[in-house]
Design a binder for these strands. Structure first.
Lengths: 215, 215, 215, 215
DNA sequence: GGATAATCGAGACGGTACGTCGCGTCTTCAT
DNA sequence: ATGAAGACGCGACGTACCGTCTCGATTATCC
């Protein structure tokens, strides 16, 4: 839920539940789309830093108060805009059947890496930390864009343990942080590539471990 | 090296090499200190978001143009300010002897985790992505604050391999990203603690691997 | 018409014609008054040189951009401010009946001299030449404050000629410049007084001429 | 004498009398010339409003303090610069013999009008009022550029009265203000031409008077 | 159907901060 | 002592956005 601020309940953006059906003129959904499209285009053109409320309103052909009516600040708009493009988690791992969970994990990681490596990925990264760190918004941002993927991995790992593909007793959270953290680290630092080979290597090292096989 | 912009070369901040000894009045080092101190105090008090050039100048008792003479923007000041406090890499791993490299690595990771977990750590994190992502400044920032620690780890890992503490053939970069990435991931996402226990678990999982010991 | 600069037409100040009745929020006339009042007070207190946009905005309790929205620079504000005080030409010669035009002229000149000799007069003088000489603004300034009075004299002179109070064939423009120029000259140079006696003498010399009566 | 301000007696610019022959390095006269030349060129190129101390120093290849050592502010430099070009009063009326003083007056007025009508004339005009009205500098300015010419006229008028070319009993100051004021008025207002015809008409009207010849 | 009410475009408004320019003073080195 | 260079404190510049507000014009629901 994006930050809500004052009088008229600034609506929950992603997945609004009930159309309140109040009295006055109902909100124009085309306006919502126009605003989000404008935001996306601006981010595309000038990066997240170039995103301003005035710019959004102008490009959407909309009054500023209209934007403020539905979103608390530029970050909220940005998040909703990004959500429309890349927020669909279902698209990421439809391909897993019943076979090897590790293989499925690898495929998912590859998809994640692909998104991370794209321009949108870098944009998301720079929005991530820009948003005041522990604001409600920043958390949502992280949850939706990064942690959601990590959570997809959790079930795969659980499955892998259940399958006997991974050993018992591992701390799933630690494992997730090692794997997804490595990807994310590369995204933010930009010191290494983020391609399929990278994913494979990370996965292999995580599974194989750094220590001596026999001890 | 911080962003340099226009006419009079905005001096390299972190480790200026040659005192140019030109003609005119030499720059006043006390002014530099006052500015950096002011920046540190403001960040301390209001977070990195509360840092403004005007605020810095006012608190330092200095003209705005003086600040701009030496730093291109607020991020550059912030970076230099942080550097003074936490930029000393030597302080982090003086304790390693000649014995177990893994143990030394663990100690270094604990120190890193401690810094990350502190307020300054969160501040650094939020500055990290704020600075336009792939600007020269942002890169320096990352290199000095994060990658420098990672590099300390590299030599320890190399040593560990040489010692026979870790197996041959591992990709050191991947290993570093798994370990430091996991820490950094937790720093930014804030979904899990960053204490000694966490460090130990991460290290253990990285070394032991997720896979079956005997297969 | 004061200098107009950019996008939203910076409105004509003195005697705006049509209230545009556009869409958005209409401009607040109280703000306009507050700004002009502030400008007047500052000029009163510190002279025209002490007038700054920041000072105006601060004293009027108004944002700087609001001032810039309606006036292009400090001179434009000053002009409108002065206009409110001394721009009323009707106040200057209401007293003429149908009798001697020369007498009426003298009275008008005395009023002009009085204004010129006042503090406001000196202020106006120093604004006159300060404003970039042949900018649109400077012209308006001159037209409203000085030339308008000169024009009042024109009709009086015409009348005087028609009455037979002055001889035919004189060049009215030259006559006006001799008379009003003499006053203005004294205003700017400050080398001689600007009282009733001065006015009377100037008028007498202009009418009587410097030459020999009979030749 | 230009405004002198502080410690080392800022020397009188226009006609320094004695070379003080103090202790240290004597001042470099070439520097003085370079500064004044720079000032002239800047005024020529950008008008008096474009004249800044920094600009002068830069163009003259001189340190700012050097300029400030000898002139109190930009107006003082400007005045000295203009003085070099147009300050020579002797050049203006060498042609008078012993014959008709009125004729000589006319010739002098024509010269004055010519200077006034030139670009330099307009520049001088705009400097005139810009300089804080009753500062010492502004007075000097006026005295040198305008009043000096008026004074030249005074002796001519006196002579004309003595010759019988003009009638007795006229107030010379008033007469001067009528004539020179008319010229100056046209210079500042710019509402009428400033050519020979104008001078002739003004003179004719001043001498002939506006009133009826016989009454 | 007429009142009520929320929407939307537009844009003025009080602010804060931006980054720049010029001021006039100062400090340093070289002459 | 003079002079070139240029750092410094300061004040103002004019601009960009912020988030709020006040308009007129729609567009619905409710009485």
């Amino acid at each position: 839920m994006t930050a809500v601020k004052k009088k008229t309940s600034r609506s929950a953006p992603v997945l609004e539940s009930a159309p309140p059906r109040g009295r006055g003129r109902p909100r124009d959904l085309q306006v919502r789309e126009a605003i989000l499209r404008a935001a996306r285009e601006i981010i595309e053109a000038s990066g997240p830093a170039g995103l301003t409320m005035e710019g959004i309103a102008a490009r959407a052909g909309v009054g500023k108060p209209t934007v403020y009516r539905w979103w608390a600040d530029r970050h909220a708009v940005a998040m909703d805009a990004m959500m429309q493009e890349h927020g669909d988690p279902a698209a990421m791992s439809p391909q897993r059947k019943g076979r090897v969970a590790i293989k499925a994990l690898q495929r998912q990681l590859e998809t994640v890496a692909e998104v991370f490596a794209s321009r949108a990925g870098r944009n998301m990264a720079s929005m991530l930390a820009a948003a005041d760190s522990d604001s409600e918004l920043a958390k949502t941002f992280r949850n939706h864009f990064v942690m959601a993927r990590r959570e997809e991995g959790r079930s795969l790992l659980n499955e892998a343990v259940a399958n006997g593909e991974l050993r018992n007793g591992i701390d799933i959270d630690v494992a997730l942080d090692m794997i997804y953290g490595a990807l994310f680290f590369r995204l933010l630092m930009g010191h290494a590539t983020l391609d399929r080979g990278a994913v494979q290597k990370i996965l292999a090292h995580a599974i194989g471990g750094l220590g001596l096989s026999e001890q």
